[in-house]
Design a protein around this nucleic acid. Sequence first.
DNA 1: ATGAAAGCGCTAACAG
DNA 2: CTGTTAGCGCTTTCAT
Lengths: 339, 339
Amino acid sequence: MTTIKDIARVTGVSVTTVSRALNGYSDVNEKTRQKIIRVSKEMNYSPNTHARSLVMNKSKTIGLLVSGLVKSSVKDNFTLQILAGINQFTADSDYDLVLFSTTSTKQREKTYSQLCKERRVDGVIIQGIRTDDPYLLEVVESNIPCVLIDIPINSNTVGYITTDNVEGAKKAVNHLIGLGHKKIAMMNGHEFAFVSKNRLEGFKEALVEADLPIHNEWIVNGEFSEEAAEEKALELLTEHPDITAIFCASDLMALGVMKAAKRLAIDVPNGLSVIGYDDILLASYVTPALTTISQNIYEMGYGAAKQLVHTLEEGAEPNVITLGTELKVRDTTGPCLRR
Amino acid sequence: MTTIKDIARVTGVSVTTVSRALNGYSDVNEKTRQKIIRVSKEMNYSPNTHARSLVMNKSKTIGLLVSGLVKSSVKDNFTLQILAGINQFTADSDYDLVLFSTTSTKQREKTYSQLCKERRVDGVIIQGIRTDDPYLLEVVESNIPCVLIDIPINSNTVGYITTDNVEGAKKAVNHLIGLGHKKIAMMNGHEFAFVSKNRLEGFKEALVEADLPIHNEWIVNGEFSEEAAEEKALELLTEHPDITAIFCASDLMALGVMKAAKRLAIDVPNGLSVIGYDDILLASYVTPALTTISQNIYEMGYGAAKQLVHTLEEGAEPNVITLGTELKVRDTTGPCLRR
DNA sequence: ATGAAAGCGCTAACAG
DNA sequence: CTGTTAGCGCTTTCAT
């Protein structure tokens, strides 16, 4: 493997000069530079990033801590879109991405800061960890720049990007209210997700603003899982047949709800309106097509990477980015036919 | 940032002993080791992988060169499943993954071996590059262990994992023939994909074995794109209305074909049988649900990682893995109602 | 404009 | 069982 030493030998200059020439410093004779560049090409030279990282104390890498890189979560390609967005931005930067593959077992072995320190990543992007994840504390305590996706924590090294979940949820519920629904339930995720908290807030706000009562027993947790949501919806709809609409905190859970409705022979949307959240790929392909709140997931990834690199390059403090949402009316919501 | 030097100072031993103690060498006094371990924990020590890589000349990282980490390819989450499989395996190994984000622009700047050499990756997994990609040559010439996904190239450093595409295609076509179809067209991908080549081969073999003629004008390329396939199918079905079934080299293209059929008011499966390939997520969710050849994409990723790590650890020569396929009969294929 | 020398944090002979 | 020393490939003062 060619090193700058080899190039120095061949060109007859010192390693210092080679280093400077290759890194574009100005204080190198143009002729010398040309020669060095030519030789390094001939010798097929590539700099050793490890050596460089070691001395420069930065690695030009961004650590990625994402959930959803497991078999079970192939259905909601949320993670893929996040990755695509991140990748799109970093491809044009000179940062590379390292995927921290953290299974639950491994996670117990290595702390967050160990993960980062070992690889000396310059910054981190985190998505999909729960609010009760011990890593979260470390992120704040550590002084490694970090951008969180959908986790509202902000410090002088930590920023985040999210969508307006309160507003999104309100939009969804107002859509149902506008269709005449008054008995609206909510299929939430779980208590360890910030988005759940916010979407619940939006749900309640919308009801209150419409002078509609809040039935706590109509708010259930489907764990962001299609199967769990199906079971929970089955119970809910059996016990409270007067419910005419359900707002779901994720599309996957909305699919579960629709399955439950089918099992109970309830027609969607005529017997029950269902609205989801996320606008995952499947939303527009299932039958009937799912009405949902669309968020630009790709954009979140892109924005996270952009924000992080900006922080890294400019030393700017990371801040907060909130993206908008959009109501996509499809075929699972319709006018309330009961009173 | 704590280094072994610091630990050596505090514990009163040499850096060598610290290094040996921490790396589990046997020739260290157990008491000394315990002390060193205790202190390194107290001081929150993490080894610097860059320093280690530099001296050991290996990095414990695997480079990932995948397509489909772009906005446009979110529909077929092939890449996500590959990544999930790879991740699943490497999570339990001590390898980390680095994502080479290679846009077309960047690709022209850096050669494959530059990419690998800079990061000193120990091995590479490649998916989704075309047969005319210049990187492919480099892969073979380079002496970095590599496992290719769906690209049949084999050398003493390069192995691959794939499914039996000839057999898979035959299975699909035989299914159609079994339903009485005799006028079967093929929507292929493009000439720069190995899978296309093989699936075409299987298609032809199946026809020949059934004593059916091969109409070359019934074989068209949809570029693995839903839109292109729709247009091509539109032409094909307009010009050759006697076609009763189409075998598509990917599910995405099958969706395009179904759209074309809809535009031409041809009922699927009664007026036209359509069979896809891949069994992507959407296949089972569209209406009518798509009959297709299922391949275990997750398993391919897992197998690729397993094979590569095995090569890396044991120094074994990479070899060839061929996975089976499975016919999933759904609702887009039915008996031939014409003659 | 160029070079000598030091050092980033670690491992690996070699010596004791 | 432990320490000394050298060196991985690179950047960076500090001289010249």
